[in-house]
Design a protein around this nucleic acid. Sequence first.
DNA 1: ATGAAAGCGCTAACAT
DNA 2: ATGTTAGCGCTTTCAT
Lengths: 341, 341
Amino acid sequence: MASDKAKPPPSAGRAERGGQRPTMADVARELGVAKITVSRALSDNTTVKDSTRQRIREAAERMGYRLNVSARNLRQQRTRTIAVVIEMAPSHDRLMSEPYPLSLLGGIMQELTAAGQNMVLTTIDLFSEHPPSTDGVILLGQGVHDDAAAAIEAMGLPYVVWGAAHGPPDRVVVGSDNRAGGRLAAGYLLGLGRRELLFLGETQHGEVDDRLIGFEAGLKGGDAAIVDRIACAFTAAAGREAVAHLLDRGRSFDGIFAASDAIAMGAIEALAAQGLAVPGDVSVVGFDDSPSASIFSPKLTSVRQDWAYGGALLAQKVLDLVAGQKVESRVMPVDLVVRES
Amino acid sequence: MASDKAKPPPSAGRAERGGQRPTMADVARELGVAKITVSRALSDNTTVKDSTRQRIREAAERMGYRLNVSARNLRQQRTRTIAVVIEMAPSHDRLMSEPYPLSLLGGIMQELTAAGQNMVLTTIDLFSEHPPSTDGVILLGQGVHDDAAAAIEAMGLPYVVWGAAHGPPDRVVVGSDNRAGGRLAAGYLLGLGRRELLFLGETQHGEVDDRLIGFEAGLKGGDAAIVDRIACAFTAAAGREAVAHLLDRGRSFDGIFAASDAIAMGAIEALAAQGLAVPGDVSVVGFDDSPSASIFSPKLTSVRQDWAYGGALLAQKVLDLVAGQKVESRVMPVDLVVRES
DNA sequence: ATGAAAGCGCTAACAT
DNA sequence: ATGTTAGCGCTTTCAT
């Protein structure tokens, strides 16, 4: 016999136990059935007589019954929830816009939703301090020096990472072929006859490092050289500042490979401010093919990666891990979108 | 890399009960204390002797103990989690980009994080079918004809809505002053001497309807008129199509008020395709002051709303509701950002 | 400062 | 087709 310790309700069928929400036990008592029957009736998946299911449904509705998800999660030892951990800057408007675009999140969400999984969006700090109840984790970016990945690893949950495969070999990583992207950028600038090249990006990020490595590899054997590598955040402001600073110091270059479109746009603005034209005087290649790349003037030439598909892969893989299956890392192809810059 | 717990050897003290994760009971047994003492030690908030706390911490760490959040949630009858329900189109790349920008989500997240609350991001369908365990709901957009709000209401959780205050008076709504935005657009176009105006937007959305109402009110008494109102989704493609269609039919107008910047950009592209210049032949006002508004060429004149602050308000209010406090709706001011269009 | 008992609301496992 | 029992892992309440 379960709970019979609550005071009898004042009156209304809805307010069973002193204003609390009714539980399955309340619904069961109301109808004189066992609460397991209520459970079965409300979750379809077992044999309950149709008329019984009908009565129970109706009573639950009338009494305002709602499933207690926490109780179910505890009992079933799973939550149908995946955490997506993002890096979030303190400032409001920088959330996720750099470096990981929305479409990555969109791909994840699409896939999780299709699998009936919920998604809790969180930061590393919050995740560590107030862990939500989740079955697995998708980490977007392993952070500078892998610190984020290490923090997640310590939680002991199945997880996958978006980024570069620079960590332990058994870690599941999904990411674009950033080296190939760098090579594409190099080939493009070489083909235009550019000779003095600039690289803009923070190579402490594994992905950016790979882009530079590929860029250097793609230049090998040609007669062009990288005249400068500037560590630079993923923002237009950082790109603008970096290029303005170089121009002030009299540095000359005729080609730029930027680690993001935002950086590229900032760079172009700084060039324009000094009377330098793109692509007349300098050619610029960005990365990501973000929506603004085709809106900007000049339209940006950029290395495109398939964010949405990447997100879908991340979701699939983490769910496979949760299900106890073996899962492998995956490098996705990129391509070059040639526009005006 | 967290030193010793990545690959737990089967034999190590970690695997208490047949490979399962250890529970508080396991840790307690290991030390010969009561599990409640473990609970207290790990959550600081009660009087536990420092040396005891030390021992327990150490043993928990060594055994790889992790709190079972579902169990805690069930016992405490709260989840420290708020659901954010968005409208998501089936297509990958449309997630949240329209009509609600990321900064709204950013503001929500900022505020929830500061309050130690997790955020589960979901769609109405998923939320209804697989309800996550949450204490409250933030609904972004009440949907056409209030259907989304109705669905959430039925869940019986505290909730707040971003949008227009067109529903029941006791519903808590946070939103921009869309009518004021419409009036600003009207005043701007009137001031430029525009006389034949076009409105682009789907007025089944309460917010868009308010924009049109304000627009009409702002034109009252002037000698300009709205020559057409076109229902139009929140996308550039829809704006382009709408305007192209009108031009094909020989419609003439010299001013456009679009319900979003994306629509405005599409409209301008359609105008340009027919040799019409902005702002030479037609003036255009957008809505949202989205990031691309200042990147687009011509730079878009647009009605700005403070998304981030709106998000923060939504979060505060839903948390207040969860805490049982009385909460009121809020209309936020907008302003006009005059640029080139 | 620590412990024993109880129970949050649900469902798996085993009857009937 | 329905019921009984047990227990998920934790924290509240009331002792000691």
